[in-house]
């Protein structure tokens, strides 16, 4: 395996073959947990972990799994990993796990996992499968991060605890203290989960207008 291929495994899912905007997998959780950047980052990290290790496990087992029961085997591997992640979150950051509620458990039915296992891990060696898992997890995380930061910035005026818009913005930096940033009002729509669906639609629009190969013909 050459270096170019390794890099492609990691970089392809970030843009040209993004799991959310191009393959249309794993949309469910991408929309619901992107209210702020922290949630988006945690969810992206959790999904990356699970995709990477489930790809690795299934790829190691691929010659021993009878094809008739492979779905059940895949589900058990995924469910095991998701249970680990969910218990880990509950142990180390209970508030966050309460906030993400059922969506951590729902990583099991995130189509990215099953899709990558079926499409890649069942037919490839462990190392490329592991990298493919990481790449797809990061591609998913990237979209979550974009949507999360847009929603948090325009919805609450702050990003990771630092205020950009509104009364509080830049109150200790003299030359930015008044004017434009203070006059900005928070956008109430962005706080609602429904905003993420519009943002995702617009991201898809931009991506497809840049890359004509992705345009739907039907």
């Amino acid at each position: 395996m050459s270096d170019v291929n390794t890099r492609k495994l990691l970089s392809d899912p970030l843009l040209d073959n993004n799991p959310i905007t191009v393959q249309v997998l794993g949309v469910c959780s991408a929309l619901a947990v992107t209210g702020n950047v922290t949630n988006a980052l945690i969810m992206g990290a959790a999904v990356t972990m699970v995709t990477a290790f489930s790809n690795l496990t299934i790829s190691l087992l691929r010659n021993y799994i009878p094809s008739r029961i492979r779905m059940i085997v895949q589900l058990v591997v995924i469910a095991f990993l998701v249970t680990l992640v969910s218990l880990f979150l509950q142990a180390f950051s209970y508030d966050l796990s309460k906030e993400l509620s059922v969506y951590v458990g729902l990583i099991i039915t995130n189509c990215i996992l099953m899709g990558r296992l079926e499409a890649f891990a069942l037919g490839n060696k462990p190392l490329p499968s592991f990298l493919d898992g990481i790449g797809n997890g990061l591609g998913y995380g990237l979209i979550l991060l974009i949507v999360g930061s847009i929603r948090e910035l325009f919805g609450t005026g702050s990003l990771l605890g630092f205020t950009f818009f509104g009364e509080e913005a830049f109150h200790n930096i003299a030359f930015l203290k008044s004017g434009f940033f203070h006059a900005f009002f928070h956008n109430g729509l962005m706080v609602l989960p429904i905003a993420s669906i519009f943002i995702l639609g617009i991201i898809i629009w931009i991506q497809r207008s840049k890359n004509a190969e992705l345009v739907d013909i039907s």
Partner: peptide, 23 residues
């Protein structure tokens, strides 16, 4: 519909509008 928005993009935006109505 504008070509890049056809199919998936439009489905997302329609779902968003339906979601707004349901809210």
């Amino acid at each position: 519909v504008p070509a890049p928005l056809r199919g998936l993009g439009m489905a997302f935006i329609i779902t968003g509008l339906m979601g707004l109505a349901f809210m």
